[in-house]
Simulated assay, not measured.
Amino acid sequence: MKRVTGSLIGVLLLMTGLNAFVLGKYGEFKFEKLHENIYVMHGPVTEPNKENEGFMNNPAVIEGKNGLIIVDPGGNYNIGEKVLSEIENVSKKPILAIFNTHKHGDHWFANKAIAEKYPKAVIYADEHMIAEAKAGEAEKWYNILDRMTGNLKGTKEFAYPTRALKMGDKIEVDSEIFVVRHPKTAHTDTDLLIEHVNSNTLFLGDNVMRGRFGAFDSTSSVFGNRKLLEEIMAEPEMKMYVPGHGQSGRRKETVEPYLAYLKVITEEIAKAYEDEVEPYEVADKVKARLEAYKAWDGIEHTLGRHLDKVYAEIEAMDE
């Protein structure tokens, strides 16, 4: 009897391991409870690669009385299925709505997995995000993520957001109240910051990252991003801040470090521009000021691009 029981336990343990969301050296991923009804799964703070299968963002769950609201479910269909499985470990309630914070596919391609199971779920995003995604941004990001991860094959159909939002919109879903903010241009030109009023939590999207730097594309503004974060730092503090990548926390832990980084690169490049010095010529000096960020993912290959971006913005403002 003991032998049978031991075998059964072994089988159960094996089944548990098979169902767990595990990504190689990055370990196991589950939703962490940040508030009585707020849960966040903090993804790896690395760029998309084969081992993380393209999972790198912070999917979030807000549990209402009758259903769930999701923020940024993840970067592809296959990851979406795993995230969905972990969501069901939090609650078996149906998913009523999804918020997408911006157009980059590593945050919203997993919409498809959720929409297949919950076709009535409303998917919210900035009005410009929906237009840009359909005009080619989704296709571009699919090709980027598939090349880097090899995990998107066969999942090229996109579940686009279905409800457009704009600055100041207030949405109520299952008695959970959300207010959205749309900066004209920050991390992209399609960003939404989502305030969950009930818990006093702010979902920042990629306007804040912690532990990694990410990228600024042609629609981004480093100066706009800095201005946005300065405004957030000047406001009454909220209880919790959830960045697009990296650990959630209080404002000093999340917003302040990324803002400090943006201040360093904008100040140094503004001075370089004034002195008629190229960005690469001050890169070592800038890096010396960023000693506290040396462990952040991507600093070696990202810093130079960020400096060039800042320089280009200053040139454009000076025209």
Rank of each mutant, 00 (worst) to 15 (best):
Ser199Leu: 02
Lys170Thr: 13
Asn207Cys: 09
Pro183Trp: 00
Asp169Ala: 09
Ile194Cys: 04
Gly214Gln: 08
Thr190Gln: 01
Asn198Ile: 00
Ser218Gln: 13
Asn200His: 12
His182Arg: 11
Gly168Thr: 02
Ala215Trp: 09
Asn207Ala: 07
Phe216Tyr: 15
Gly214Asp: 01
Ser220Gly: 07
Ala215Tyr: 13
Ser175Met: 08
Ser199Thr: 15
Ser199Gln: 13
Val180Asn: 04
Ile171Thr: 11
Leu204Tyr: 07
Asp191Met: 00
Ala215Pro: 00
Gly214Ala: 11
Val197Phe: 14
Phe213Lys: 09
Gly205Asp: 02
Ser218Cys: 01
Ser175Val: 06
Arg212Ile: 14
Gly205Pro: 00
Asp189Arg: 12
Phe213Gly: 01
Glu195Asp: 14
Gly214Arg: 10
Met209Glu: 06
Phe216Ser: 06
Asp206Ser: 13
Phe203Trp: 09
Glu176His: 05
Asp174Ser: 07
Asn200Glu: 14
Thr190Cys: 10
Val197Arg: 11
Phe213Cys: 05
Leu192Pro: 00
Phe203Gly: 06
Thr219Gly: 09
Val197Met: 14
Asp206Arg: 06
Leu193Ser: 10
Glu172Lys: 11
Ser199Met: 09
Phe178Tyr: 15
Ser175Gln: 14
Gly205Ala: 07
Pro183Gln: 07
Asp189Thr: 08
His196Gly: 04
Ala186Arg: 03
Glu195Ala: 08
Phe216Leu: 14
Leu193Asn: 04
Asp174Met: 09
Leu192Met: 11
Thr219Val: 07
Asp174Glu: 10
Arg212Lys: 14
Leu202Pro: 05
Pro183Tyr: 01
Arg181Ser: 09
Ser220Trp: 01
Val173Met: 05
Phe203Glu: 04
Asp169Gln: 07
Ser218Asp: 13
Asp217Ser: 11
Lys184Trp: 04
Asp174Gly: 04
Gly211Asn: 08
Arg212Cys: 12
Asp174Ala: 02
Ser199His: 11
Gly211Trp: 03
Thr185Met: 10
Ala186Trp: 05
Asp206Asn: 15
Leu192Asp: 08
Leu204Trp: 06
Val197Lys: 13
Pro183Ala: 02
Ile171Glu: 11
His196Glu: 15
Asp174Leu: 07
Val197Trp: 12
Asp206Val: 07
Phe203Asp: 02
Val180Ile: 10
Thr188Glu: 06
Gly168Lys: 05
Val208Met: 04
Glu176Thr: 06
Phe216Pro: 00
Ser218Trp: 07
Asn198Pro: 14
Met209Gly: 00
